[in-house]
Design a protein around this nucleic acid. Sequence first.
DNA 1: GCCATGGCTAGTA
DNA 2: GCCATGGCTAGTA
Length: 104
Amino acid sequence: MKNKKEYSVSTQKILAAIKIIPSGKVDTYGNVADRAGLRNGARLVVRVLHTLSESEKLPWYRIVNKQGKISLEGEGAILQRNLLEIEGVIVNDDKIDLEKYGLK
DNA sequence: GCCATGGCTAGTA
DNA sequence: GCCATGGCTAGTA
C-alpha cells in the first residue's frame, strides 16, 4: 500500500508559501497566493488549508484575512488566537496589526 | 465533464 | 469573480 500522494504544482507552491511564514508572524490569504504565483488564488489557499493542514502540519493559524482579522468563528477562532498569542502575536478583538506582524 | 467548495478579495454602484 | 480538487453523473463502448 503506497501513499505517494502527488500534489499539483499550484498546491505544492501554496504549501511552500505557507510553510515559509515564521513563528510570531502572520500572513494573508491573498499574499500566500501571490507568493505561490497565483494572482487570485486566495480561495484556493483556503481550500488547501482546509484539506491539508493536518497531514502537512501547516501553520494554518498564521493566516488571516486582508484586514488582519481572524476569519474563523467560534472554537476555531479561539484556538487560532491562542496559538498566535503563544508565539507572541498580540490580538485585539480578533484583529492583528499587519504592519507589525505581517509579512512584507 | 460538471459543479460545489471555501477561513477571500479587488473593484464597482 | 477567481482557482484547483474531489466527488458524482451522463453518456459511450
